[in-house]
Structure formats: C-alpha cells, structure tokens
Design a protein around this nucleic acid. Structure first.
Lengths: 336, 336
DNA sequence: TTGAAAGCGTTACCAC
DNA sequence: GTGGTAACGCTTTCAA
C-alpha cells in the first residue's frame, strides 16, 4: 500500500505537508502543492481510512438504520436508500448499513466502535424502540419520520397533514361535496405510524373548512376488501363521492374497482392519490397525485446530518422539518 | 471514549492481554479472562474500529455495490440488501454501500482507502462496466449475476436455466403439448442481461426434450402489450397453450388478460411463473411458481466472500455457483 | 511556508 | 500464560 510517506518522499516534502495539502487546513505554496498533487496522482495514493479516523476522530461514515423488511413499501425504501447514499457521497460521506433487527445493540455498537460519525434512522414510527436509544447518544442523529415525542430530536418527514389538506382542497375546488377516503391497510394502521394520523387529520380539517362531507372507508391491500370499500362509497345515497386513496398499494385496486362499477376515473368519478412510493402508473389511467417527495425528504435528512457533523458543537437544537408535497395534475379532476 | 488501556487497568492486566482475550488468538487462563470480560462489561468497552483496522489491516467491512435505481425490480433489490446485511452481521461484518453511479472510481476508492476488505457486486449484467475494474483488484470480490466472461471471477446467481427447464417439465407433465412463453419487457432485454438468455435456453432445451411446441411472445410491463401477447397465444389454432410468465411484473397482467378472455388460470388454462421478486400475490389466484430464492443467493454470496476473507491466501479459484430454484405448487396445474 | 515528532487505540511480536 | 513495546498511517501541535 502506498502511504503519505511515499507521497512525501516522491514530492520531496514532509509527510505533514502532504496531509495539509489534502486537508487544506493550512496555507501551502503553489509550488509544493503542485508537487504533492503530482506525486499523489503518480502513485494513485488513497489516504488510509482507518488511520485517518484514528488520528482525526472522524470516520466520514454515516450509519443508516434501515427498517426490517416487512414487504410493505419496499420499493420506496429502496429509493430512500439510493438517494441517501448518493447525497452522502456528494458531501464526502459513506453509508454504513445497520439493520433494524440488530436492535438497540446494533446502534450502540456502531457508535461505540466509532465506525460512523452520525446516524440516520429510516421509517421512524410513533412508538419506535430505536428512539429512546438514540436520544442520549453523543453523536448527531436524524430521524426520518416523527415519533410520538420528538422532544430534543432532529426529525424530518413529508408533510402528510398538508398532503391530506391538498387532496380535499383539490377535490373541493373541482366541485365535489362528498369525499370518501380509504384508510391504510390494517398492517400499517395497527402500529402507531404517525403519518397515517397526520394525513387523516389534514383531510378532516380541510373537509370541515371546505364543508364537504367525509366518508371514511376501511383500506386494504387485497382486491376484495378494496372493492368492498369502493362499492360502499358508490352505493351511498346521493352523488358518487370523490375518492382519496392515500396508500400507493391500493390505488391500482381502486381504479379497477371503479371500472368494474362502470365508473371511469377522471370522467365519471374523481380519484386522488398520495403516495410515498414510485407508484407504477403504467397500468393506470393517469390521475392527479400528491407527490410526497421521498427523494427530497431523504436528501434533506442527509444535508441536515452533514451540517451537524461539520458544525463545531454538537449541542443540537430540536428540529422538526416537514417537506411540503407537490400536487401533480396528470388529468383534470372532474366534478360529480 | 473508553479504550483497551482503561479495560486493562480496571482488570489489572496488560493491554495486550485485553486484545488477546477479545481475539482469542492466544490461550488465556480462565481467571484473567473473567476479569477482563468483567471490566469490558462494566466499562461498556467497544474496540475502536479505526485503530483495529489500522493495526490488523482488516476492516471487517464489506463493500456492497448496489445498482442504480432503475425502477425495475426495486423491491427485489431491497430484499437482497436486507439479507446481505443480516448475513454479513452474522459473520461479524458490516456493509458499506457503494452506489453504482460512483462508477469505477467509487470501487477503486473504497478499496484504495481500505474502507472495506472485499466487495459484493449486485445485479451484474452481461457486459458490466464494473467487471473489468474488479477483475484485477487485490481484494476478494463476489458477483451476483454472471457476466459474459466470468473467467477468473467468483460468481453466484440463481439457476435460471434450470428454472426454465422446470417450468416446461412441470407443464409437460400436466399434459400440455403447447407452451407460450412471454418475454421480458424491452427495458430488460435490450441490455445484455444474461439471466434472460439462460432462462430461455432452459425453456427451449426442455421443450425439445419433452417434445412440446413452443411459442415465444413479446413481453411488456403495460396491460395492453401483455394482453396482446396473451390474445395472440390464445388465438392460435389448436388447444389453448399453457403460459410461462417469467417476469414478476407481468404475472398479474397475464392473469387479468386471461380472465378477460374468459379463461380461469388453474381451471381452463395453466400459467406458471418464475420470479426473483417477492411478488405481491394478494391479487392473484395462487398458482405454481418457480421460486428463484433471492434470499438464498444473497446469503450465499456473503458466505462465499466471508470464506475468502477468512482464508489465509487470496489466490481465488474461479467459482461459478448456481442456486437451484424451488418449485412451489400452490394450485395444481391442469391439462388443456 | 514548512518540517519534526507526538499521539490516536489497536495488533502482534518478542521476552519472560 | 502474561507483560512490554514496536508498528500501523494518519492528524496536529510546536518549532523553525
């Protein structure tokens, strides 16, 4: 392995000078910098990460705690990871995976071993076992998702409350006076996942503000239960309501259920969806969608953490940042 | 930070003894081991990863080169990552992410900086830009997927050839004499992805062996083109053929297309699928499926790499290991 | 503007 | 079976 000593020898300077040229932490003459850079290129020198971490007490690695695979929203998780890794690299950080099934010990281990400088927690839920662990860690941590008690923590998430409001306002503006909102599947709802509540709170509040009638229907991931809910909404007395399908998995099923009721979304009935996932629209009639911007959320999480890591002091103030969703009109929403 | 010196002081032994107790690289008396372990527990000591890497020239980190997000098979990618991370941990290794968009430089960087001891490359294609880079790296590398020229490389993948054969044999045994096989979508086929060819080679060979007629139909990810292909298969003169739907994304569409032709899979027509993905079966009539065992493939990749890492010598012999798929009969396949 | 040298916290060799 | 100590390759302080 080629070391900074080799570079120094070739460049005819001291080893420390090589270090300073690389870090820029002290001024160097144009001449020596050239010499050092030439030597580095010639020898294809890469500073040894372990030695650097040992001496500088900084690893330039971020630990990413990924959720245990639970077959829900796996593709969205992949997008998060991909964006996080890329954004981290643009700040000269690497990503180390910590699987959730390692639990609290896993988190304490990577911090204890000083394998990474900080942590990002993905998919933080209302009552998350990881939260108490990270709360009194002496490294900066950024949570994606808002736990029940975010006091003293740095959290970021999509603004689900706003997403709910946008859905209702969009439909109301199109002339709808009755809206049916499908719930999330039971697997999601039974755990205390805050974004569900935040979304529904937004919907409820906007419905009140816009004076539209609200019908909450059970959600599901299977064709039968979604079809049942849709039928229930259609069978109400009065005009056919507009539908809000907040879970990406259900959107396609909603379409199909409506079609089989003789209703064409975007023509006879309005449907609006909001999703964290890169929903595969290929099979769908394009519709208005609320984009919760998972990429923006992930990128911002990294930016925030890198900011904390570069800062001199770690005495972090509580942060709660919500990324506003974008509304994507891919087809006009019609009135009933 | 608590160091091994602190542990040594508390335990009343030499620092080197602490190291040896941890590594087990030399015999220790029961008594001192107890003392050291007690001190470690009491102080919650974690060995510093950087110092350890520097001194031992081993990081106990595996670099995982993940494919650039291309919206195809993202959930299967997530399963791979999850299993790889978990398996690596069970061998006391951590996973560092290297995104494919960092390219050759990214790979050379992590190896050069000695951030990791070895590499796993996911989703290796026929002509893969990463292959020439890793070919002459002085760290062990395991490829998931078989490149055009696997000479001198350690490769592992699902046995797609066998999967193709199994599909045909299964249908032939059920009495079918005509089989229609849907291709992969153009996005997949236009790149030289070897597994597609391997699967089709298996199908072709088995069709010849079993003397069944073979009809190759274009694949697709949209409802229209899949429906067109299915109709084409059904409209042939003679009995309705059995269908092979190798791509997970198309399976659901095939079902729907058959239904709308008045054919019920498993009753009027046979369909067999093989998939790398955790296919969402929720909307499907359960059918016979070829399970390509992505988890087994990923776990084995890690096992192989760990084996190479623990071995004294790195002079790796070429390896090409194929994991046989499992056939899952979730409904009987009927004859035409 | 630059060089010399003292750590950083391990591992592993050499004595005993 | 155990202790002392020289690396490992870098960062950073102190002198010049």
């Amino acid at each position: 392995m080629v070391t900074s000593r080799d570079v120094a020898r070739v460049a005819g300077v001291a080893q420390s000078t090589v270090s300073y040229v690389l870090s820029g932490k002290r001024p160097t003459s144009e001449e020596t910098r050239k010499k050092v850079e030439a030597a580095i290129g010639q020898l294809t020198y890469h500073p040894n990460a372990g030695a650097r971490a040992l001496a500088s007490r900084r690893t330039r690695v971020i630990g990413l705690v990924i959720p245990f695979i639970r077959d829900l929203h796996m593709n969205s998780i992949m997008e998060f990871i991909s964006v996080i890794a890329t954004t981290a690299r643009s700040h000269d950080y690497d990503i180390l995976l910590v699987t959730e099934d390692e639990g609290a010990d896993g988190i304490r281990r990577v911090v204890g071993q000083q394998i990474c400088d900080g942590l990002i927690l993905m998919q933080v839920e209302g009552e998350d076992a990881r939260v108490p662990v990270v709360r009194d860690l002496k490294v900066p941590v950024v949570l994606i998702g808002i736990p029940q008690d975010p006091a003293g923590l740095v959290c970021i998430d999509a603004d689900f409350e706003m997403a709910g409001r946008l859905c209702v306002h969009e439909l109301s503006a199109a002339g709808h006076t009755r809206i049916a909102v499908l719930g999330w599947p039971a697997e999601v709802v039974k755990r205390p996942i805050n974004y569900v509540n935040r979304f529904l709170a937004g919907v409820t509040r906007a419905a009140r503000d816009c004076r539209v009638g609200l019908l909450e229907l059970p959600g599901g991931t299977d064709r039968a239960s979604v079809a049942r809910s849709v039928r229930q909404g259609v069978d109400q007395t009065g005009p056919v309501p507009a539908f809000i399908a907040p879970d990406s998995g259900a959107q396609e099923l909603v379409q199909q259920a409506l079609f089989s009721q003789g209703l064409t979304p975007g023509v006879d009935v309005s449907v609006i969806g909001s999703t964290l996932a890169v929903v595969a629209e290929r099979q769908l009639v394009p519709l208005t969608t609320i984009d919760l911007k998972p990429a923006a959320v992930s990128a911002r999480a990294v930016e925030i953490l890198c900011g904390l890591l570069e800062a001199a002091e770690y005495d972090v103030n509580e942060v709660l940042e919500l990324i506003p969703p974008a509304i994507e009109r891919r087809a006009s929403v019609v009135g009933t």
